[in-house]
Amino acid sequence: MTIGLTLSGIDHRYRDLTVLEGIDLTIPPGEVTVLLGPSGCGKSTLLGIAGGLIEPTSGSVTAEGDVAPDCLNPLTYVFQDFALLPWRDVAGNISLVLEDHPLPRAERTARIQEVLALTGLVDFAAAWPRQLSGGMRQRVGIARALAVRPACLLLDEPFSALDAQTRDLLLDEFAALIARAATTCVYVTHNLAEAVRLGQQIVVLSRRPGRVREIFRIDRPIAGRRTDEPDLLAIEARLWELIRGDAVAAEREIHHAG
């Protein structure tokens, strides 16, 4: 029970700056789609549009599929900066997204316990966000997203604020989680290793205005993938070739859009 998304004819402009142009994209149900591109290519904007947080200048997003009855928020985000409420403890932050729904108290507690267990946070239920490391904070962000039993997860560079070691640890945990849940995922990153580690469909976006340059497919299960496998390394090298020029140009650019 999961959903797929179809993005058709998406254009987006901030005032006179064209960010995205003519994006047509299908996000297949139950798969991980990675949006890859250099910084400033509009991939986060595209993710915002996909989940209904940003209104595109033109074009539309449609969802297709059945949503499980226990799903409280079909399209659910995980944020780069975690977006935890500092005035709620770990359990409270998860509880926040359940409180608006008429769940029996026992069910709510059960869901919180369940996602805490899934993300290894059971001992941290009463901790304040400020007391946690970056990795633990993002675990809370993922636990919160899982608590609503989403039909589609939208992840905006979820591990880019973490150090390399923590990132690798979390990446493995996360890969195991989504492999089990078989939830549709849209994963935004500029990190090539992450892309080949998680992606079943990798969408390479060009630099501004963002267009779809190429789509790669890696048709093998996420679980058990290792970044040092030869086929994945080959794809990584291909991807780097593709976006290298754009990355150099992006790095030398003066920022206009805020």
């Binding site: 947080l53 928020n73 900066d81 409420l85 926040l96 997204v97």
Partner: peptide, 12 residues
């Protein structure tokens, strides 16, 4: 960002 987070979870 916190307000957008609330909206992304469809809080009232």
């Amino acid at each position: 960002g916190l307000i957008r987070m609330g909206q992304s979870f469809s809080l009232s």
